[in-house]
Amino acid sequence: MKILQVIPSLSPYLGGPTRVALQLSKSLQVIGADVEILTTDDGTNQRLEVPLNQPIRFKGLKTTFLPRTVQAKEFLYTHALSKWHRNHLKQFHLIHTHYLFSHLPTWTARAARHSNIPYLMRPLGQLTPWALSQSAQRKKLYRYLIENRNLEQAAMIHCTSPGEVSDIKALNIQTPKLLLPLGVELPSLNRPIAKRQLLQKYKLDNQPILLFLSRLHPKKRVEFLLDVVQHLNKQALKINLLVAGSGEPSYEQHLQEYTNVLGISDRVTFTGFIDGAEKNTILQGSDLFLLPSYSENFGIAVAEALAAATPVVITPNVQIAPWIAEYNAGWIIPTDITQWIKTISETLQHPEILLQRGQSSRKLASTVFSWPVIAKELLDVYTNIHQTHTKKLINL
């Protein structure tokens, strides 16, 4: 059984979606699945320097990069896709698309329908009320013309949280839903050393470290965190906020300017994009991970903080929240600034609570968000879909 994973971009600057697509494919490959990736050379603000229109080994995975022809936000049109479909699509027994409202996954799902190839769709949070309210008319038309039929005729819709299942049911989409979370790698823990390294690298005073680590985008509500820091500062509770990530240059500049206006430049450090060992250090060296996002279908950065034994403070809109609550691995607080200030202030004054919830965080990550377990379950799903489809073809 040959499996094709389809995602618009593998740019490292996109953070979670890229890491998930690669790690999911690697985990499937480890247990014997024949997996390939189809994507574009989109590198967010530039293009990835990779060979095009041919399969190559990328991060240990067989991957084909098609040239991005037009970049219209996430749509990422590629003129080469139709030719690739004609020459290669029927080689695959099953297709798993990642993301909606984008040329590569949308038109590949459509081509799979026309070629009678079973496919799964992972919406990546694009069917939440908040996401659908952005460019609402364009998305409504897009769904009417093509995406609804893709969703309705998919073998399954891959949801990564109970909240995502509810969002899709609310749209009256009857397609079977697969509830399967995403995974994270478990790093070796040495939090005291990581803390010292952070203090030294960023020249911080020895005060608690709060961390925001994600793509810099208005929906993540970094401004809200900056307001929280200003209020904590007025209460004479000194903390360090690390803002790790990158985004549109104009938005990055806006955040820098807002920090200056609030008068907290000495308490806030913008690290820029980080990855690898540096990201592991910043996750383990921080006391709390914060994400007050308007909407997250899962929140892979939250799961990575849990794996680093760092408790989290998130909004209910981050749909990993039910697991956080079940394992008591952090705090789920509505975006009310008074409640956030109170929770953070009281928590930082009780290190024993931070330690207990950090231990719960690690247990949650190792129990629920284990890539080997997730890959095994997903491969079983793939196999069942393929076998059912094959029997239908035989009975025609």
Rank of each mutant, 00 (worst) to 15 (best):
residue 16 G to H: 04
residue 17 P to H: 02
residue 24 L to K: 00
residue 26 K to V: 04
residue 27 S to L: 09
residue 29 Q to S: 09
residue 31 I to Y: 01
residue 41 D to A: 05
residue 42 D to S: 01
residue 50 V to S: 07
residue 51 P to D: 15
residue 55 P to D: 05
residue 56 I to D: 06
residue 60 G to K: 12
residue 62 K to A: 15
residue 71 Q to E: 11
residue 71 Q to G: 06
residue 72 A to C: 07
residue 77 Y to P: 00
residue 79 H to G: 02
residue 80 A to G: 08
residue 87 N to S: 13
residue 89 L to V: 11
residue 93 H to G: 12
residue 104 L to A: 12
residue 106 T to Q: 14
residue 108 T to P: 06
residue 115 S to N: 15
residue 117 I to Y: 11
residue 120 L to Q: 12
residue 123 P to N: 13
residue 125 G to D: 15
residue 125 G to C: 14
residue 127 L to R: 14
residue 130 W to D: 05
residue 130 W to V: 03
residue 131 A to D: 11
residue 135 S to D: 05
residue 140 K to L: 12
residue 144 Y to L: 07
residue 150 N to L: 07
residue 155 A to L: 01
residue 156 M to I: 03
residue 159 C to G: 08
residue 160 T to Q: 13
residue 171 L to S: 14
residue 171 L to F: 12
residue 172 N to R: 07
residue 176 P to I: 09
residue 176 P to R: 11
residue 181 P to Y: 10
residue 185 E to L: 00
residue 187 P to H: 03
residue 193 I to H: 00
residue 196 R to Q: 01
residue 202 Y to S: 01
residue 203 K to A: 03
residue 207 Q to S: 01
residue 209 I to H: 00
residue 210 L to N: 01
residue 216 L to E: 10
residue 217 H to I: 07
residue 218 P to R: 01
residue 219 K to T: 07
residue 228 V to C: 08
residue 231 H to R: 13
residue 232 L to I: 06
residue 236 A to V: 13
residue 241 L to P: 11
residue 244 A to N: 08
residue 246 S to E: 12
residue 247 G to N: 11
residue 248 E to C: 02
residue 249 P to G: 10
residue 253 Q to F: 12
residue 253 Q to V: 05
residue 256 Q to Y: 15
residue 263 G to K: 15
residue 265 S to I: 13
residue 265 S to M: 13
residue 266 D to S: 13
residue 270 F to R: 04
residue 283 L to D: 06
residue 285 G to W: 03
residue 285 G to T: 04
residue 285 G to Y: 02
residue 287 D to W: 06
residue 287 D to I: 08
residue 288 L to H: 04
residue 289 F to R: 02
residue 293 S to H: 04
residue 295 S to G: 11
residue 297 N to D: 02
residue 298 F to N: 13
residue 298 F to E: 13
residue 303 A to G: 08
residue 304 E to D: 14
residue 311 P to A: 10
residue 318 V to K: 01
residue 318 V to H: 03
residue 318 V to D: 08
residue 322 P to W: 07
residue 323 W to C: 01
residue 324 I to T: 06
residue 331 W to Q: 03
residue 338 T to V: 12
residue 340 W to N: 08
residue 346 E to H: 04
residue 348 L to I: 10
residue 350 H to V: 10
residue 353 I to E: 07
residue 354 L to C: 11
residue 357 R to Q: 15
residue 357 R to L: 14
residue 361 S to V: 13
residue 362 R to L: 06
residue 371 W to L: 06
residue 371 W to R: 03
residue 374 I to P: 11
residue 383 T to W: 09
residue 384 N to F: 09
residue 387 Q to G: 01
residue 392 K to R: 14
